[in-house]
Computed example of a mutant assay.
Amino acid sequence: MTLDQGTHVKLRQATTATDLDTLRDLILAVGLSHERGAITATFEGSTYWIADLDGRPAGCIGLEHGEGASLIRSATVLPHARRQGLGRALATSALTQATLRGDRAVYLFSSDAGPFWEQFGFTRVPPETVAAALPDTPQVISGEGRGWLKDEVGWMRTLGVPSWPEGA
């Protein structure tokens, strides 16, 4: 994918321990967490992507998978890489993956990025709705255990499950 003149973006699925370290570095760099040990990113029951901008990690997004739903988490783009379509590419990738897995809905927590997610069809819901839909995901477990969940803003988007022609 090429953005503005000469800028190259590569989205890749995170699969290694080094990729987990990169995810944590990105999360810390934008202030989504201030403590490396508190970041619950894991490959168990989750899928993450890293966006490389001109060969360097500049953003990431993850999906924590539940039963018929997924939770978007750790959606971030470094400040110098914003407003170039990187966030849109990451969000689209995650929504496509959730649709292909057959999820009926996708949820997330965000206190300050509501306008970004609204353009993808997300609507505000109580955080308890998110927790009830995905009680076993690392982010929900962390939020309940650390007490920050009650102060969050929940978001939800219903997905249409692709229908395939008969005999396909």
Score class of each variant (00 low, 15 high):
residue 2 T to E: 15
residue 6 G to K: 11
residue 8 H to M: 10
residue 10 K to T: 15
residue 13 Q to E: 15
residue 17 A to F: 07
residue 21 D to W: 09
residue 22 T to L: 08
residue 23 L to Q: 00
residue 26 L to P: 00
residue 27 I to Y: 05
residue 29 A to R: 13
residue 30 V to G: 03
residue 31 G to S: 05
residue 33 S to L: 03
residue 36 R to T: 11
residue 37 G to N: 03
residue 41 A to F: 05
residue 41 A to M: 07
residue 42 T to C: 12
residue 45 G to P: 09
residue 45 G to N: 14
residue 46 S to D: 01
residue 49 W to A: 00
residue 50 I to H: 01
residue 52 D to F: 05
residue 55 G to P: 02
residue 56 R to S: 12
residue 57 P to D: 07
residue 62 G to K: 05
residue 64 E to V: 05
residue 70 S to C: 12
residue 76 T to I: 05
residue 77 V to A: 04
residue 81 A to N: 04
residue 86 L to V: 10
residue 87 G to D: 00
residue 89 A to D: 01
residue 91 A to L: 14
residue 91 A to D: 07
residue 96 T to I: 11
residue 102 G to E: 09
residue 103 D to S: 03
residue 106 V to L: 06
residue 107 Y to G: 01
residue 109 F to C: 02
residue 109 F to K: 00
residue 113 A to C: 03
residue 118 E to K: 08
residue 118 E to T: 15
residue 119 Q to E: 15
residue 122 F to K: 01
residue 124 R to E: 15
residue 142 S to H: 12
residue 143 G to A: 04
residue 143 G to I: 03
residue 144 E to W: 10
residue 145 G to M: 05
residue 149 L to R: 09
residue 152 E to H: 13
residue 153 V to G: 08
residue 159 L to N: 05
residue 159 L to H: 06
residue 160 G to Y: 11
residue 167 G to F: 03
